[in-house]
């Protein structure tokens, strides 16, 4: 499970994994929905394009869930980083040093992942049909 009293490799990769899954859900929601509706109505010039409200809602829910999980990861990583009261570059061969390193690296990955999730979700804000 991702919730852990100690930082480890699983907690380290949780946020990027959430980012990857969010990308997968967003991509398949939009592509799958459009492929199905476009196949039903072979679109001619000037005709209305299928509206993708359902796919946008799926992406919205996936984004809220992903950001929430990453927020929890961030809080946990902050705790791991601060628990040993050790500062970078974390090069001492001690338990606190390792916890500090893993916690800090996880914290940075959480930051990267939340930016990634938001960037992946942004097209759904601006694009409202299957064109």
């Amino acid at each position: 499970m991702i919730a852990s009293t100690r930082a480890n490799l699983i907690t380290l990769v949780t946020a990027p994994t959430v980012w990857a899954l969010h990308f997968l859900v967003s991509y398949t929601a939009a592509a799958g929905y459009c492929a199905k509706t476009m196949a039903d109505a072979r679109v001619m010039t000037g005709a209305a394009w299928p509206d993708i409200t359902i796919a946008r809602l799926v992406i919205l829910v996936a984004t809220v869930v992903a950001v929430a999980i990453i927020a929890l990861c961030t809080r946990q990583a902050w705790g791991h980083w601060r628990s040993g009261d050790v500062d970078p570059p974390f090069d001492e061969p001690s338990f606190e040093g390792r916890q500090g390193f893993l916690g800090f690296a996880t914290l940075l990955l959480c930051g990267l992942s939340v930016v990634g999730v938001i960037f992946v979700a942004l097209p759904a804000v601006f694009i409202g049909d299957c064109r």
């Binding site: 960037f119 942004l122 097209p123 804000v125 601006f126 694009i127 409202g128 049909d129 064109r131």
Partner: peptide, 9 residues
């Protein structure tokens, strides 16, 4: 990204 996405539709 926002600027580019606004142009796409």
């Amino acid at each position: 990204l926002v600027y580019g996405l606004r142009l796409m539709p």
